[in-house]
């Protein structure tokens, strides 16, 4: 399975480097941003599978701002919010806005890895489904061209048969003339 590409957003350098270390060890590709503003700049240039962002950050763009930009930018990006203990209400607001999940500080890394592996499984399933869809669409495309061609050909042939029949049934002409006309179409 392809490694998850993760953006860690936190104004606290200790949390950033800890997350960076743990996630890299878990074979994720990790980048970090030290503010919401920096995160938004990075999101608009690069696609991330998952964004792990602190909810409360100084500098005008908080976790919700990051979440909104991420979702606007690419609906496939999953966002996990990190909240301080006791700020569940904010976390619920975030979930309503499309966050995948939230974690409370202090971060339990086993829990985080578990959530990430669930996201990865989901992405894997989605990839399978989308591959199947592409295969189905290709088959459909090719067969539809064949069927449409046959449909038109059959209709034309039916029309021609009908004309030939009418010509052959004409009583006002001698048989030889009818056959000549029928063959000429």
């Amino acid at each position: 399975m392809q490694a998850l590409k993760i953006l860690v957003v936190d104004d606290d350098p200790v949390t950033r480097s800890l997350l960076m270390k743990r996630l890299s060890k878990a074979e994720c590709v990790v980048e970090t941003a030290e503010s919401g503003v920096e995160a938004i700049r990075m999101i608009s240039n690069t696609y991330f599978d998952v964004i792990l962002t602190d909810l409360m950050m100084p500098g005008g763009v908080d976790g919700i701002g990051v979440l909104e930009t991420a979702k606007e930018n690419n609906i496939k990006t999953e966002v996990i919010l990190i909240t301080a203990h006791g700020s569940i209400d904010n976390a619920i607001v975030a979930m309503k806005k499309g966050a995948n999940d939230y974690l409370q500080k202090p971060i339990n890394f086993d829990e985080l890895i578990l959530r990430l592996s669930k996201i990865q499984n989901l992405k894997h399933l989605m990839k399978n489904a989308s591959d199947l869809r592409v295969a189905m669409e290709t088959t459909e495309q090719v067969s539809s061209e064949t069927i449409q061609h046959l449909e038109m050909t059959v209709a034309e042939l039916q029309e021609r048969m009908l004309t030939i029949r009418k010509t052959l049934e004409r009583r006002d002409l001698p048989p030889g003339e009818r056959i000549r006309m029928a063959l000429a179409g």
Partner: peptide
């Protein structure tokens, strides 16, 4: 549908 056909189904329709 793009892979459907009315040949042999409904001669009242012309494609």
């Amino acid at each position: 549908g793009s892979t459907e056909s009315l040949t042999g189904v409904c001669p009242r329709f012309v494609p």
